[in-house]
Amino acid sequence: MGFKLLSKLLVYLTASIMAIASPLAFSVDSSGEYPTVSEIPVGEVRLYQIADGVWSHIATQSFDGAVYPSNGLIVRDGDELLLIDTAWGAKNTAALLAEIEKQIGLPVTRAVSTHFHDDRVGGVDVLRAAGVATYASPSTRRLAEVEGNEIPTHSLEGLSSSGDAVRFGPVELFYPGAAHSTDNLIVYVPSASVLYGGCAIYELSRTSAGNVADADLAEWPTSIERIQQHYPEAQFVIPGHGLPGGLDLLKHTTNVVKAHTNRSVVE
Rank of each mutant, 00 (worst) to 15 (best):
V54G: 01
D85L: 00
V42L: 13
H115C: 00
W55V: 13
E147S: 10
D29N: 03
T60R: 08
I238V: 04
V266F: 12
V126D: 04
A95R: 08
T254E: 11
H57M: 02
E150F: 05
R120L: 01
V189H: 14
F26C: 11
P244R: 11
H57W: 06
H241W: 01
E150L: 15
S70A: 09
V132G: 03
M18P: 03
M18R: 04
I151F: 14
R142K: 14
L47M: 11
V257F: 07
H117Y: 00
R76L: 12
S27A: 08
V75I: 11
K102D: 12
S16D: 08
Y231V: 09
D119E: 01
A178Y: 11
L9K: 08
G245C: 02
D85V: 00
H115G: 03
V121R: 15
S264T: 11
S160D: 05
T93K: 00
V189S: 04
L243C: 03
T36F: 15
V237H: 03
G123V: 00
S16T: 12
A21G: 10
Y135D: 00
V194I: 12
V187I: 08
K4W: 09
L96R: 01
V166I: 11
V265N: 03
V37A: 08
F116C: 05
Y175L: 11
S30G: 10
P239L: 02
Y175N: 02
L195M: 15
T254N: 13
S160L: 08
T109V: 10
I186S: 05
L83M: 13
G105Q: 11
V187H: 00
E172H: 03
G78E: 07
S16H: 01
G122Y: 02
E233R: 10
E233H: 11
L96Y: 02
R226M: 10
I186Y: 02
T60M: 07
S7M: 15
V187Y: 00
N184M: 01
V265C: 08
A98Q: 03
G158A: 12
L217I: 04
T109R: 12
E147L: 06
S22L: 14
V265S: 06
A19P: 07
E203G: 08
A144H: 04
D248C: 07
E39A: 11
E39R: 07
L24P: 06
G89H: 14
V28K: 12
S139T: 14
G197D: 00
A111V: 10
I17P: 03
D164I: 11
N71K: 01
V212N: 14
S113Q: 09
A165F: 12
G210Y: 05
F26I: 03
Y48R: 06
I201M: 14
F26E: 14
G105K: 15
G242T: 02
D29H: 05
S162W: 10
Q49M: 07
S155L: 10
D52M: 14
V171G: 04
Q103N: 07
I84H: 02
E39D: 04
E44T: 11
F3S: 13
